[in-house]
Write a protein that binds this DNA or RNA. Structure first.
Lengths: 93, 93
DNA sequence: GCGTCTTATCATCACCGCGTGATATCAGCG
DNA sequence: CGCTGATATCACGCGGTGATGATAAGACGC
């Protein structure tokens, strides 16, 4: 999941989808990337369950799944929390 | 920052440092990676401000900076939150 | 059915980043 | 001061991955 967010274009897509559901052509307009490029990234996001596709006529709307994002946010926050509580701990050499 | 966490070895290092402050030799033992490899990753983490180095004799202790982790966790959580509140929004084609 | 528009899939290429080896630096110790 | 051990730096090779082009698959209107 973090690997998916690590790519700039995918991060942009996720950011755009956080605001509203969009179809592929919107994402192509907004990002300026080629359609095939967007489509490839959407597939990865889809297979990872980060977004879900809703076919609508000849368009395909994509919406974000907040749970997956929230889960990774919680994971990272958990690391920060552990670091805070163990800030004094140090293993001797 | 997310790019840093995207690498498996770096993620492992961050995870280990979340529990306690460690020096390079500890990380080498725990991860099984070569020293030069660990050191290269530590540099990236250091330059990004994710960890801070504390020289201690001929050893170098590394500790995690919780703020940076917390900030990225908040950022991702913010995206999830926005997605939740705008789950009904949809831009027409 | 035909043309057009939107989207998806696949193969290919180029490039970036990780791992590694060689080497330098520095601290401690005799 | 020389030696050893811990760490850092640099250059290089190779593999994974993102971008692209060509193409296929549907959906809509005529």
């Amino acid at each position: 999941m973090i690997k998916l967010l690590a790519d700039p274009l995918r991060a942009r897509i996720v950011q755009l989808l956080a605001g509203e559901a969009l179809c592929t052509c919107h994402l192509v307009e907004e990002t300026g990337a080629r359609q095939t490029n967007i489509s490839n990234h959407l597939r990865q996001l889809r297979e990872a369950g980060v977004v879900e596709a809703e076919p609508c006529g000849r368009f395909t709307y994509y919406r974000l799944r907040p749970e997956v994002l929230q889960a990774t946010a919680d994971h990272i926050a958990g690391l920060a929390e552990r670091a805070r509580t163990h800030s004094e701990a140090r293993r001797p050499c």
